[in-house]
Design a protein around this nucleic acid. Structure first.
Lengths: 223, 223
DNA sequence: CAACTATGTAAGAGGGCTATCACTTGTTAA
DNA sequence: TTAACAAGTGATAGCCCTCTTACATAGTTG
């Protein structure tokens, strides 16, 4: 064949992206460089420039892949957290927020699970919103990245509107708050902040992030 | 005198720290470098090394100053948010902050104000917990920094225990959650995340951060 | 005023990174 | 088979950074 096992290296383009993820997971954006990625793959430092015109375009491809994978991780976690609604916009009746009726309560669980999923994904890969929305990428024209980030945000907004927020417009600040708390826990964890009083397990902090998200959802004004 | 207007430059050490803040505010940690700080002050690139043995020690001094200033900003905002308790552990009575009763409610207001104060301070200075707890500073021995960060955390924990959390031990995760949400909003704002749907004012996001913190405090288990 | 000390400069070694260029090697297709 | 193309290499220019060394200068102190 010719498509899957390409010329000299064998799909160096894809390898560059996965090696970039490894680098990000180990040292964050600070350590990321085209030269380091090439070194890790054992290719010359000029090789990446056959596939990406410059550093920012490689980073943009990583950003697009991260948005895609993060969306998948979030969807998986959301489904695991509660029964998937037949319709994302939730045409359910106004049942109470008692113990666990199917409608809004399950939707709230799914939405809260986003925070934990975000935390776990970014701790594992190093590629969170600081990479997906890295300022240096604003000038980069990359249709795939645009598409993936849009899909990610749409998914988050869908999960939010499936709870009983009054409107799509109200869902935006709710999603932003959940992202903020998830990103905050993640960023502090990555900087070793939680290691002050003895190292804390990833799962402990992931649970905290999820719980905080749940509190934010509960506090949201209801119609 | 000789203390205030020192030798050649006039307290270059302090000037290096304030110039570092400016640099952080403009370009974040990514743009910070000893050479850039020196350039900004119009001194040679070797001059900073008369006052700090290496880059990390300068950054550590900035971190200590940031912890000090941030603590001051937080205290000021906390006092403005509610009547200062005569004793940090509460024991106050009337004089409401608008509609709420004095004791725990006012304490909750003060604690929630931490998030807004953090957001405003870091947006203005660029020096948040990612600088104060920068991983590269773990190896740096800097007594002042240790002292300032300890004081900052103690202040936060005091504000938390002044609410009706069951114990000091319970205050730690509450403080961490508030820091997480504040840091998350700040970090996303700095990366331009909120500029997606039209630029948002600093105060708008600061209010969101404060409101999110309030939700986290309300959700805390009570004795 | 003469040593001494503190502070700053000029120059540069040494290193990493981005990006380019001419060249080589393997693959495809006329 | 051979021209054209795709993909990788070695070398290198140019930039910025950290940190050092030798030297210059300005206050301090006996």
């Amino acid at each position: 064949m010719s498509r899957d096992r390409a010329y000299h290296h064998g799909d160096l383009r894809a390898a560059l992206i996965t090696a970039s993820f490894e680098l990000l997971a180990e040292g964050g954006l600070r350590r990321f460089s085209v030269a380091a990625v090439a070194r890790r793959l054992g290719v010359s430092s000029a090789a990446p420039y056959r596939h990406f015109p410059d550093r920012d375009h490689l980073l943009s491809a990583v950003s697009g892949a991260a948005a895609h994978d993060l969306r998948a991780a979030i969807l998986k976690a959301a489904v695991a957290a509660g029964p998937p609604a037949p319709d994302d916009l939730g045409a359910t009746d106004p049942a109470a927020a008692g113990s666990a009726p199917a409608g809004p309560a399950a939707a709230a669980d799914r939405l809260a699970a986003v925070a934990g999923a975000y935390f776990r994904y970014v701790v594992a890969t190093g590629a969170g919103f600081h990479v997906i929305y890295a300022p240096e990428l604003y000038a980069v024209a990359d249709e795939n990245r645009r598409e993936q980030t849009r899909a990610l945000m749409d998914t988050l907004l869908d999960l939010a509107t499936a709870t009983d927020v009054p409107s799509y417009r109200q869902a935006v600040p709710l999603v932003e708050a959940i992202i903020a708390v998830a990103h905050g826990y993640t960023s502090l964890f990555a900087d070793g902040f939680f290691a002050r009083g003895g190292p804390q397990a990833v799962e402990t902090v992931a649970a905290r992030a999820t719980e905080a998200a749940r509190a934010l959802i509960r506090a949201e004004p209801r119609p």
